[in-house]
């Protein structure tokens, strides 16, 4: 492993231990309740970036994958009462398959058709769930939390640590893709797909793989939602606001580096939490929309791009 690789894993270990320590020390439940949402967006944004940022295929349907994750968990709880870990793994498997399927259907076409298809999947799945009585239909379904596992003292704290772990896994996967030949192939696709194919890149296979991995991570992020809220309804689980956030965060943070989506999610996610609590949840969507448009127009390289620019200037002087 390279020096950078060691540093990454040491950093990841520190983050995870910090999360565990915080869960043991901090008493106020609310912090974990809010932090869970922010970390969940780290997973979603990182997952979106694998296909959207590296390969340039814009997924508008993050909410479809997220909602599928949540409802797979609901089904498994109702049918078999499976534990959280298995719910997440099953959700990831289904999300990956869904990503592969959507990709197979539309990734041969121009980018915009893929984007529209992902919106279509969202609405179709939402409609299907609305019409499915077993998982509660349009009114949603109440979930009873099982007793919390040792050593955690509350369920929210456990879910928080679980989501931190998921975020570390997601970032590690994204980072591995980015720094390996796979990432180079995806970037070649984004820059010029025909040239990529003519330099030996199996473009369709790589896109399908990226779409499946990205979908699996998004669904995994959605799986704990059932336990987190003790309640799931289609209108919120499949809400397009997840899609716009999952897309805005990497673009605001910067799509070319794995740190971009993490930064974007931490910043924008925190702002969203504050705005939702202090003003209104509508305004927080407006904040996302406006920031997205501002960055896409004025700072297409995102925060990471701005940082490197500043760094280069300092070095130059």
């Amino acid at each position: 492993m390279t020096a950078r690789g060691y540093r990454f894993w040491i950093g990841a270990a520190i983050v995870l231990s910090a999360a565990c320590v915080a869960a043991a020390v901090v008493k106020n439940e609310y912090y974990f309740y809010a932090a869970y949402v922010v970390i969940q967006f780290v997973v979603l944004a990182t997952a979106w970036n694998i296909l959207g940022g590296y390969a340039g295929y814009v997924n508008f349907g993050s909410s479809a994958f997220f909602g599928v994750g949540a409802y797979i968990a609901v089904m498994l709880i109702k049918w078999l009462n499976l534990p959280l870990g298995l719910q997440i793994i099953a959700a990831a498997a289904v999300g990956g398959t869904l990503g592969f399927g959507v990709g197979l259907l539309t990734l041969r076409l121009r980018g915009i058709f893929f984007s529209i298809a992902t919106v279509a999947i969202t609405i179709i799945l939402e409609t299907a769930v609305i019409n499915w009585r077993f998982v509660g239909g349009a009114t949603g379904i109440q979930i009873l939390r099982p007793p919390v596992m040792e050593p955690f003292e509350s369920y929210t704290k456990m879910l928080f640590v679980c989501m931190v772990l998921l975020a570390i896994i997601a970032v590690a996967i994204a980072r591995h893709i980015e720094t390996s030949w796979i990432g180079r192939g995806l970037r070649a696709i984004r820059d010029n797909e025909e040239a990529a194919e003519c330099t030996g890149v199996p473009t369709l296979k790589l896109k399908l793989a990226a779409c499946a991995i990205s979908g699996a991570l998004m669904s995994a992020a959605g799986a704990p939602l059932a336990m987190y809220q003790s309640f799931v309804e289609p209108a919120s689980a499949f809400n397009l606001t997840y899609s716009v956030s999952a897309l805005a965060m990497p673009i605001i943070g910067g799509t070319s580096h794995w740190l971009g989506p993490v930064l974007g999610a931490l910043l924008l996610g925190s702002v969203q939490q504050i705005v939702t609590v202090t003003v209104s949840s509508e305004l927080n969507v407006l904040v996302v929309g406006v920031l997205l448009v501002v960055f896409v127009v004025a700072a297409p390289q995102g925060l990471v791009g701005l940082f490197t620019k500043v760094k280069d200037k300092v070095k130059g002087n």
Binding site: R184, A188, R190, D191, E194, A196, T199, G200
Partner: peptide
Amino acid sequence: FQIPRPFSSMTVMENLMVPLEFV
């Protein structure tokens, strides 16, 4: 290509790495 199609987000070196790694 008739109109050059570089991988424009990459350096010259990285452009060559693509076929080296994939072929």
